[in-house]
Simulated scan of single mutants.
Amino acid sequence: MRVPFVKMHGLGNDFVVLDAREQALPTLAPAIVRALADRHEGIGCDQLILLEPSDTASAAMRIFNRDGSEVESCGNANRAVGVLLGQPARVATKGGMVELRPDADGIAVTLDPPRFDWDAIPLAYAMDTLTLPLGWEELEQPAAVNVGNPHVVFFVEDNDAVPLERLGPIIETDSVFPHKINVNVATVEDRKTIRLRVWERGAGLTRACGTGACATAVAAMRRGLADRAVTVHLPGGALSIAWREDGHIVMTGPATEAYRGSFEWDDYA
């Protein structure tokens, strides 16, 4: 079976997009995802995106990390799908319904209001999610927020100095996070500017994480560190994040189609 794909990226966070809206594909087993995502023997990506038909939206989107795990949401993938669809659309994800709209600065993505209850993150037991009484070496007292997927956010003086490649996997897999966690380390430059690095659950260090930018911006706003509209600078580029008065988050930024191709399914099954 010959399967077409589109290779895309959002600020360097890259995807293989498979479109099964008109022709169904075999089951995406974790081993197939890992094989396709392999940068040496496969196509190579941080996440594999599967588009499927939906009765309630323009499409349904499923998101698989390169380790084969399926996750609820991906902000950069939302923008990539917005570029593919090329018009205003609603897309159903496991993390909620998202609205996509072409914008002069790329694609504007409207997300559901963030959740802050401890069992909505989720955490293993009740605690204050604005300032978790937890620490891992120099990283202490993060905020926790669910923006369709779970995040903790550490505010530090210099996020570039944090050994995130070492601490990220330790925090991600801590038993206090039953569904694992995305780890963000942020430096607030001023009330409109944040620098951010992200260890992404199931993917590792990433050049950009759209939901991480949303979670970090909201956490900074809740702590009184930032205004309701900020620019978040990631290693791959910048995203504009606004937290509207109705609770919805709007993330705006670019996404790019790199190339198209096809592969034999049986080569990776």
Score class of each variant (00 low, 15 high):
residue 191 R to G: 13
residue 169 P to R: 07
residue 226 A to Q: 01
residue 223 R to W: 11
residue 233 H to R: 15
residue 226 A to L: 09
residue 241 I to F: 06
residue 230 V to I: 06
residue 213 A to E: 11
residue 182 N to R: 08
residue 218 V to Y: 07
residue 175 S to A: 14
residue 167 L to V: 13
residue 172 E to G: 03
residue 233 H to V: 13
residue 216 T to W: 06
residue 228 R to W: 11
residue 166 R to T: 15
residue 222 R to F: 13
residue 238 A to S: 14
residue 245 E to M: 11
residue 247 G to T: 07
residue 204 G to C: 12
residue 202 G to P: 11
residue 174 D to G: 09
residue 206 T to Y: 05
residue 200 E to W: 00
residue 230 V to G: 08
residue 244 R to E: 15
residue 173 T to C: 12
residue 215 A to P: 04
residue 212 G to L: 08
residue 181 I to R: 04
residue 214 C to N: 08
residue 180 K to Q: 15
residue 213 A to K: 01
residue 235 P to T: 12
residue 180 K to M: 07
residue 192 K to M: 13
residue 196 L to D: 04
residue 164 L to D: 02
residue 224 G to P: 01
residue 168 G to W: 03
residue 213 A to R: 05
residue 242 A to W: 03
residue 176 V to C: 14
residue 227 D to G: 09
residue 214 C to D: 07
residue 201 R to Q: 10
residue 215 A to F: 05
residue 184 N to S: 06
residue 207 R to N: 13
residue 196 L to T: 00
residue 197 R to T: 01
residue 163 P to Y: 08
residue 163 P to S: 07
residue 188 V to D: 00
residue 230 V to Y: 04
residue 214 C to Q: 01
residue 212 G to K: 09
residue 187 T to F: 08
residue 179 H to F: 12
residue 180 K to G: 00
residue 244 R to I: 02
residue 170 I to A: 15
residue 245 E to H: 13
residue 245 E to N: 14
residue 205 L to C: 10
residue 186 A to W: 01
residue 230 V to C: 08
residue 194 I to H: 02
residue 175 S to T: 13
residue 193 T to C: 12
residue 222 R to P: 06
residue 217 A to R: 06
residue 236 G to V: 09
residue 165 E to F: 03
residue 180 K to E: 09
residue 175 S to R: 14
residue 246 D to M: 07
residue 234 L to D: 04
residue 171 I to H: 03
residue 205 L to G: 03
residue 173 T to P: 00
residue 204 G to Y: 10
residue 231 T to P: 00
residue 237 G to A: 02
residue 166 R to C: 08
residue 167 L to A: 08
residue 176 V to Q: 14
